[in-house]
Amino acid sequence: MTGEGFDVAFVQLQLGHEHAATTSGYTMPSPDYQRLALERAHERTIQAALGLQAQRRNP
């Protein structure tokens, strides 16, 4: 599956690539996208942890 949920074989057919290796180059997220996704996940984790701490203090 690609990042958007499409099967790689489907994408390969749509793009007309003879080899799956050609298509796989399009399925890897860019370093900028990876960094942004990790930053977002990190922020959500921090916010969730802070919310748990607040719940424990104010039951």
Rank of each mutant, 00 (worst) to 15 (best):
M1L: 08
M1K: 08
T2P: 01
T2D: 02
G3S: 10
G5P: 04
G5S: 00
D7H: 10
V8M: 05
A9R: 15
A9G: 05
V11W: 04
Q14W: 14
Q14M: 11
L15D: 07
H17S: 01
H17T: 01
H17G: 01
E18P: 01
H19P: 00
A20N: 01
A21E: 04
A21F: 05
A21P: 00
T22A: 05
T23Y: 08
S24N: 12
G25I: 04
G25H: 05
Y26I: 05
Y26D: 01
S30G: 01
S30K: 04
S30L: 07
D32G: 00
Y33H: 01
Y33W: 04
Y33M: 02
Q34P: 02
L36Q: 13
A37Y: 13
L38H: 10
E39V: 14
R40D: 04
R40F: 09
R40K: 12
A41K: 15
A41L: 13
H42N: 04
H42D: 04
H42Q: 13
H42L: 14
H42E: 09
R44A: 08
T45L: 04
T45V: 07
T45G: 07
I46L: 07
I46P: 02
I46R: 14
A49S: 11
A49H: 13
A49R: 13
G51N: 09
L52G: 01
L52M: 10
Q53R: 12
Q53W: 10
Q55I: 11
Q55P: 00
R56Y: 13
R57H: 07
R57E: 05
N58K: 09
N58T: 10
N58R: 11
P59F: 09
P59I: 08
